[in-house]
């Protein structure tokens, strides 16, 4: 406790980490070779490290629960924090490539867990390159929701292969999503919005979700309101473009 009071990175009033001490570049190159540890396979992911309260002892219950939501490129973790209270019994993980940002989210979750005991135990974050290592974290059909909120637009055509939604990467997302699972994407860049929509539209294992269903889904409202990027866009009166699709069985 004493440590925290001396730690300038933690706000004295809210006990939350202060963002200005975790300033990072806005973008990171997903193509570069990675220098962080990666679990060999999904069974090597240490759940007790991420969700200590759910996996306190090695009892029978421990083996049963698995991560169901993945926020790819979670940024400063706004969505994760909102989802954690909305779905308190669902395990969720944020994946972020920038180490400083990951560090911030980690501190933020720890602080929230301390501030409101019993809550936020189901949210965690990991530093990884999700474009490369998704199969190392999740088994086939493990996830029910995947989020891609305000991803890096990579405007140059030469760099389109760095986009987190691409026809080939959708194959991997379809693999980790269960049938009926939902993929949420949103961006404030019209060009990227069109791109993501056309990628999903053209993929045989995804179908668009109807407007009525979108209205009924409480998560959809969070897409633009919960994230730091989304708040920034609405502050500036910007437009957002979303594409929400369901994983289906491919027609043979």
């Amino acid at each position: 406790m004493l440590e925290n009071e001396e730690n300038p990175c933690i706000s004295k009033s809210t006990r939350l980490p202060r963002k200005r001490f975790y300033r990072a570049r806005a973008h990171s190159n997903p193509l570069s070779d990675s220098h962080f540890p990666v679990p060999i396979s999904p069974s090597h992911v240490d759940y007790s490290l991420h969700y200590p309260q759910f996996f306190q002892s090695s009892d029978i219950l421990a083996g049963s629960k698995k991560i169901e939501f993945a926020d790819i490129g979670c940024g400063f973790g706004g969505l994760l924090i909102s989802l954690a209270t909305l779905f308190p019994e669902t395990l969720m993980i944020g994946m972020e490539l920038r180490d400083k940002v990951t560090e911030y989210v980690k501190e933020r979750i720890l602080a929230l867990r301390k501030a409101s005991p019993g809550e936020y135990q189901n949210a965690s974050v990991v530093r990884t390159n999700s474009m490369k290592y998704i199969p190392n974290y999740f088994e086939k059909g493990q996830l029910s929701k995947m989020f891609f909120l305000f991803p890096d637009p990579h405007f140059k055509e030469k760099n389109h292969r760095r986009r987190v939604i691409s026809p080939h990467l959708l194959d991997e997302y379809a693999y980790v999503l269960r049938v009926g699972g939902i993929i949420y994407t949103i961006t404030d860049v019209e060009e990227l919005g069109d791109w993501m929509k056309s990628c999903l539209e053209g993929h045989c294992m995804f179908e668009a979700i109807t407007e009525e269903e979108l209205e009924a889904d409480p998560v959809v409202k969070l897409l633009s309101s919960a994230t730091e990027e989304g708040q920034k866009v609405s502050r500036n009166g910007g437009q957002t473009f979303r594409a929400v699709y369901r994983r289906i069985l491919p027609c043979v």
Binding site: I40, S41, P42, P135, N136, K140, P167, L170, D171, E172, A174, Y175, H203, C204, M205, P250, V252
Partner: peptide
């Protein structure tokens, strides 16, 4: 990566059967 080889592979092979991970 183990991918189902489709009847018409010119449209791409999208269905991943499994990943063999341990190496």
């Amino acid at each position: 990566r183990v991918t189902a080889f489709p009847k018409n592979p010119l449209d791409g092979a999208h269905e991943i059967q499994s990943f063999c991970l341990a190496h």
